[in-house]
Computed example of a mutant assay.
Amino acid sequence: MHKPELAAEIADKTGLSKEKAMEVITAFTDQVSAAAARQEDTVLTGFGTFSVRERQAREGRNPQTGATIKIPASKSVGFKPGKVLKESVR
């Protein structure tokens, strides 16, 4: 499901216009991004947790040449599903 489809589903379920639902989704994603930039988790009880994860520096291989390369440490955003979300997939 893409963002416009999600907005349409939310609009149907809540009675909001599609444009207003799109604004709500955009506001949500903006706030999750802002929290991640501040190194804060976003917890939606039952649904899941968005958190910043740190990757350590490591060695890798160039697939074309086989040469060893150093991959620097980095940060990434991860998502851990909550109990309700996990159970809905079963």
Results as ranks from 00 to 15, higher is better:
Met1Lys: 01
His2Phe: 10
His2Cys: 02
His2Ser: 10
His2Lys: 15
His2Glu: 14
Lys3Ile: 08
Pro4Ile: 10
Glu5Asn: 08
Leu6His: 09
Leu6Cys: 08
Ala8Lys: 08
Ala8Trp: 01
Ala8Val: 11
Ala8Arg: 09
Glu9Tyr: 08
Glu9Leu: 12
Ile10Arg: 03
Ile10Val: 14
Ile10Gln: 06
Ala11Met: 02
Ala11His: 09
Asp12Tyr: 09
Asp12Ser: 13
Asp12Ala: 15
Lys13Cys: 06
Lys13Val: 04
Lys13Asn: 10
Thr14Ser: 15
Leu16Ile: 12
Leu16Cys: 08
Ser17Gly: 14
Glu19Asn: 12
Glu19Met: 06
Lys20Val: 15
Lys20Leu: 15
Lys20Tyr: 13
Ala21His: 06
Ala21Cys: 03
Ala21Ile: 02
Ala21Glu: 08
Ala21Asn: 08
Met22Ile: 10
Met22Trp: 00
Ile25Tyr: 04
Ile25Asp: 06
Ile25Cys: 03
Ile25Thr: 06
Thr26Met: 04
Ala27Leu: 13
Ala27Glu: 03
Ala27Tyr: 03
Ala27Gly: 03
Phe28Leu: 15
Phe28Val: 13
Thr29Leu: 12
Asp30Tyr: 04
Asp30Ile: 04
Gln31His: 11
Val32His: 00
Val32Trp: 00
Ser33Asp: 05
Ser33Asn: 10
Ala34Lys: 08
Ala35Pro: 07
Ala36Leu: 14
Ala37Arg: 15
Arg38Gln: 14
Gln39Arg: 15
Gln39Thr: 08
Gln39Met: 14
Gln39Lys: 15
Glu40Ala: 03
Glu40Tyr: 05
Asp41Pro: 05
Asp41Phe: 05
Asp41Glu: 14
Asp41Ser: 14
Thr42Trp: 07
Val43Asn: 12
Leu44Phe: 15
Leu44Gly: 11
Leu44Thr: 13
Leu44Ser: 13
Gly46Trp: 05
Gly46Val: 06
Phe47Pro: 05
Gly48Arg: 07
Gly48Leu: 11
Thr49Ala: 10
Thr49Ile: 15
Thr49Phe: 11
Phe50Gly: 03
Phe50Leu: 00
Ser51Ala: 07
Ser51Ile: 00
Ser51Tyr: 07
Val52Lys: 00
Val52Pro: 00
Arg53Gly: 13
Arg55Glu: 03
Gln56Ala: 15
Gln56Glu: 13
Gln56Tyr: 00
Gln56Ile: 01
Arg58Gly: 04
Glu59Lys: 12
Gly60Gln: 04
Arg61Trp: 01
Arg61Tyr: 05
Pro63Tyr: 05
Gln64Cys: 01
Gln64Leu: 08
Thr65Leu: 02
Thr65Asp: 13
Thr65Lys: 00
Gly66Asp: 03
Gly66Ile: 02
Ala67Glu: 15
Lys70Asp: 09
Lys70Met: 06
Ile71Thr: 02
Pro72Ala: 14
Pro72Leu: 12
Pro72Met: 10
Pro72Glu: 09
Ala73Gln: 02
Ser74Trp: 04
Lys75His: 13
Ser76Glu: 13
Ser76Gln: 07
Val77Phe: 04
Val77Gly: 03
Gly78Arg: 03
Gly78Ile: 01
Phe79Thr: 04
Phe79Cys: 11
Lys80Val: 10
Pro81Trp: 00
Pro81Glu: 08
Gly82Ile: 03
Lys83Gln: 12
Lys83Glu: 11
Lys86Met: 02
Glu87Lys: 07
Glu87Asp: 14
Ser88Leu: 12
Ser88Met: 14
Ser88Gly: 10
Ser88Tyr: 10
Arg90Asn: 14
Arg90Glu: 14
Arg90Pro: 09
